[in-house]
């Protein structure tokens, strides 16, 4: 029984259940609502529901301990390999760095500046060489031109020293303030 949604929201006395619930929540029951037996019964049930809900909501429910490990095992296995970008020189063999690894190097470099956190780091192969686009969030009140320039310099340096790349361009897109 009671599988169908019950749509009779009006008590036999004519009081609407939603209105009653609102008055109850505000502690502003009308004289009728305080004295009518239908309303009082409904108030009792609403209170019972609220207290059962509070009880259920306060139950501490945590994810099973193995959930994170199981998901991360799949995630690490699949990864997002991205492109394998060549790193010079290529005399006695080829060195390549996968995009996520290169992005990580460049992101970390940009964040050494401080006051900036980097989300996306997209590396593009253009005719003249590699370019980089960073999405960044900067601290409120930061001087964006100086900060972006410092980050740009740090990224270029890291690219040169750690990857052997001379970047033709580093674009910084400030998407939000933190």
């Amino acid at each position: 029984m009671a599988v169908e949604p019950t749509d009779h929201d009006r008590l036999p006395c004519g009081t609407d259940l939603t209105t009653l619930a609102g008055h109850l929540a505000e502690g502003a029951l009308t004289a009728h609502e305080r004295n009518c037996s239908h309303c009082r019964g409904a108030v009792r049930r609403l209170r019972a529901l609220d207290s059962a809900r509070d009880d259920l909501a306060s139950e501490s429910v945590s994810a099973p301990p193995q959930l994170l490990d199981e998901v991360m095992r799949v995630v690490r296995t699949e990864g997002r390999p991205g492109r394998a970008l060549p790193v010079p020189p290529e005399q006695h063999g080829v060195t390549r760095v996968r995009e996520p690894a290169a992005a990580r190097i460049l992101r970390t470099a940009a964040e050494t500046v401080g006051g900036i956190s980097v989300g996306r780091c997209r590396i593009s192969e253009e005719d003249e060489g590699l370019s980089v686009l960073l999405t960044a969030r900067v601290e409120t009140g930061a001087a964006i031109p100086e900060l972006a320039e410092a980050a740009r310099r740090a990224v270029r340096d890291a690219a040169r020293h750690q990857l052997g790349w001379t970047l033709i361009r580093v674009d910084v897109e400030v998407v939000d303030l933190s």
Binding site: V61, S62, A63, P64, L67, L68, V71, M72, V75, R76, G79, R80, P81, G82, R98, E99, P100, A103, R104, R107, S117, V118, G119, R120, C121, R122, T135, R137, V175, D176, S178
Partner: peptide, 29 residues
């Protein structure tokens, strides 16, 4: 912020995704 981590995870940073999972797994479950 979640947004920064989500962008890194989009780029393939599994560590960023790990952090997001730690933040949200209880609510998801």
């Amino acid at each position: 912020p979640d947004a920064t981590l989500a962008e890194r995870a989009q780029d393939g940073d599994t560590g960023a995704f790990d952090t997001l999972l730690r933040r949200h797994q209880d609510t998801v479950y």
